[in-house]
Amino acid sequence: MIFLRKILFPFAVLYGCITRFRNFLFDVGILKSYSFDMPVIAVGNLSVGGTGKTPQIEYLIRLLSDKHKIATLSRGYKRQSKGFVLADTTSTAITIGDEPFQFYKKFPDIIVAVDADRKNGIEQLISLNESPDIILLDDAFQHRKVKAGFYILLTAYDDLFCDDFILPTGNLRESRSGAKRANMIIVTKCPKKISELAQDKIRRRIGVDKPLFFSVITYEDYVYSSNEAIKVSEIKNVNKLLLAGIAKPKSFFAYLQNENDVILTFSDHHHFTEEDILHIKKQAKNNIIITTEKDYVRLKGSILERQLFYLPIKTSFISGGDNFDKTILNYVGTSTRNS
Rank of each mutant, 00 (worst) to 15 (best):
L304Y: 04
D133Q: 09
P39Q: 06
A116G: 11
Q142V: 12
I135C: 09
A12F: 03
V48F: 06
F36D: 05
I289C: 05
G121W: 03
G52Q: 04
Y219L: 11
Y104M: 08
G29Y: 07
D325C: 05
G49Q: 07
Q283F: 10
K314A: 12
T54A: 07
L86C: 05
S47V: 04
L8Y: 10
G321Q: 00
D158Q: 11
F103C: 07
E196L: 08
L86A: 09
R22K: 15
K145H: 10
G52D: 02
S267K: 13
F272E: 08
K285F: 07
S47G: 11
S91Q: 08
Y255H: 13
P132G: 11
A182S: 11
P108R: 15
T89W: 02
L64Q: 03
D221E: 15
F107Q: 06
N286S: 12
L160M: 09
E234A: 11
E234F: 01
N129P: 13
L64D: 01
I111D: 04
S74M: 12
T327A: 13
S233E: 13
K32M: 11
I289P: 00
Q56S: 10
I328F: 02
A42T: 13
S35H: 10
R205P: 02
L153G: 02
K248E: 07
T72D: 11
